[in-house]
Amino acid sequence: MAMSVALKQFEKRDPVPAKAGAGLKAEHVDEILRSRPQVGFFEVHAENYMGDGGLPHRQLSSIRDTYAISMHGVGLSIGGEDPLNKDHLARLKRLQDRYEPALFSEHLAWSSHGENYYNDLLPVPYNSAVLERVCDHIDELQEVLGRSILLENPSTYVAFEQSTMSEIDFLSAIVQRTGCWLLLDVNNVYVSATNQQTDPDDYLDAFPIAHVGEIHLAGHAQDQDEAGRLLLIDSHDRAVDDAVWGLYERLIARTGLIPTLVEWDGDIPAWPVLKDEMDKANALMVRPRARHQPQERVAVPA
């Protein structure tokens, strides 16, 4: 596949500082605008700002005046079997033009099929035919936006008989073919590894970290499958788990500083609680390291 988009910087306007950021929640906006806390960046779900006007845009514009913004799409269905929705691509482009986000990310998942939108990040099998389709969709998105995007690794609850590649090989091939960057969600790594009974440290060791432009952290819930095996749910409704903090600490010791988002989308806490989680990530990022030097970050080959 020809790479149709020459690599462009994924950071536009102001780069995102390599600090912790937070998912922006409407219930926190007034307090944030009043107290102007030190926050690296705010990430918003693009689909929440696709109305014509009113309070959501007013709030986001005010936040944008002070902070770097990361735009996180949850509904494009990049992993879908249907062609990308042209109306939705145009909406994403309008948002990007209006807010000039420093980062733009989407998911390795699908959410629409036929006429229906399912509002969940649904899984794809990892094989060459799906790889081709996903790369075509990323090419198209990057062409519309005129920039490189970051693609997020999924939380998975199932595997597919139809898979012939590992998730790491699949993501690495996407990066090579499309020039996109990766959003490494460490909670998703832990959730998926637990659910697939693999080792999250092995996954992170194999991950193409030179292409990681952002990290996500979030909380997860616990359940069991029919065989009584632990089943973790990517719920984003509580504090980051200690095991995920551990993975994160080992990861950033290797990668050096990377903008890190704390996501908290359900049972949303008071702002100071979320701020504490960010401070925790910041403290781990700047921890002095005697032996580990941050690895030099390599640009994605065009």
Partner: peptide, 16 residues
């Protein structure tokens, strides 16, 4: 759609 043992798992699918 299978679990880590490559056996079909409706409980796991039910998460979605």
């Amino acid at each position: 759609v299978v679990g880590p043992d490559r056996k079909p798992s409706t409980k796991r699918f039910n998460v979605y």
